[in-house]
């Protein structure tokens, strides 16, 4: 009996000791978690707005519930298909091309021997990220304007080609938008990947070189595996944003040109155009909640798959 008691007590003591061991770790997390509670979790109560017809006079809480009525406008339209297709389509392309280019650039930067060149390249590829999207839309306009635009004037003109009325020709825009997006964002992601790359142990490369591995083999067998967890993390995070789109890219860069809606209208721009004059907070939160919810489901699924394959790389 006595022995048994002791045996029972020991795990408890161990557990307590173990918990005490983690106490500093929990303490470290306090400021961050507290901030998330204040900045994110408490305002999340506002999600109820999506299910209410808000009347501020009565207060959000006492406003009448309307069920899923605020969500209807997202689906009761023939455009629902177009906007969903566009949103997912562009995001898929971004999801694949973005990292592809960013990783390539990161690897190239890592392989380059000239320190000076490295620095210059790194700085220059970050330039587009620093330009506000509205200014980007002016620059794109400067390139594509029908009469004074650089492309029609200097490029097509030089080849004797007919000028193109870019802002009324939808067929070019999928390419233009992808180019603009990549142009603006690849420097930023390259830097993230590059930071992960320089963290890879140099000795691995040295060992591989001694074994006679070529550069490609080194990249394939050391670099890419070393980036695996960063790639997975970034991809999972992008999947969560699958139903969102960069408003500036799809609204301002095409200058809200009606002729391009078939290829530029996404969930965000649709909601903006529909609600611009309505000032209806219920419907706009409904749209946001819908986007988040789908993203959430997608991430849960993707994370489940990841955790089946490689437990440590899962987000949670």
């Amino acid at each position: 009996m006595k022995n048994e008691k002791q045996n029972n007590a020991r795990p408890a003591v161990c557990l307590r000791a173990k918990n005490r061991r983690y106490r500093p770790l929990y303490a470290m997390m306090v400021p961050g978690l507290l901030y998330l509670v204040i900045n994110n979790y408490i305002p999340m109560a506002g999600i109820v707005i999506a299910f209410k017809q808000v009347n501020y006079k009565a207060g959000i809480l006492k406003s009448p519930w309307v069920g899923f009525k605020n969500f209807e406008f997202l689906f009761k339209t023939k455009d629902a298909l177009t906007i969903t297709r566009n949103t997912i389509g562009y995001n898929l392309v971004f999801l694949i091309l973005g990292p592809l280019l960013a990783i390539t650039v990161a690897i190239l930067l890592n392989e380059l021997k000239s320190k000076m060149a490295k620095k210059v390249y790194q700085t220059v590829i970050l330039v587009p990220y620093l330009i506000s999207i509205v200014v980007v839309s002016y620059l794109v306009y400067a390139l594509l304007a029908t009469e004074a635009g650089f492309v029609n004037n200097s490029v097509l003109g030089a080849f004797g080609a007919e000028p193109v009325s870019w802002y009324s020709e939808a067929k070019y825009w999928p390419v233009i938008l992808v180019l603009v997006h990549i142009w603006k964002g690849f420097g930023y992601s390259s830097i993230i990947y590059y930071a992960a790359l320089v963290g890879i142990d140099r000795t691995c490369y040295e060992a591989a070189a001694i074994d006679g591995a070529t550069r490609w083999q080194q990249i394939l067998h050391i670099t890419l595996p070393g980036l695996k967890s960063t790639i997975i993390t970034l991809t999972l995070m992008s999947i969560g944003k699958m139903f969102y789109s960069d408003f500036g890219l799809f609204y301002q860069v095409p200058m809200d040109s009606g002729a391009l809606y078939d290829v530029t209208n996404t969930i965000d721009t649709y909601v903006y155009r529909g609600l611009m004059k309505l000032n209806n907070v219920g419907m706009s939160s409904a749209a946001g909640l819908y986007q988040s919810f789908v993203g959430f489901i997608l991430v849960l699924t993707a994370n489940l798959v990841v955790s089946k394959i490689s437990k440590d790389d899962a987000l949670f």
């Binding site: 406008f73 455009d79 009324s168 040109s257 002729a259 209208n265 155009r273 609600l275």
Partner: peptide
């Protein structure tokens, strides 16, 4: 008629301005 208005607003945005500007 909020649902109808949001849908129609998008369609008006698509055609109206371009038509009035003579580009369609």
């Amino acid at each position: 008629v909020l649902n109808e208005i949001t849908a129609c607003s998008n369609i008006v945005g698509k055609y109206n301005n371009a038509l009035l500007c003579g580009s369609l």
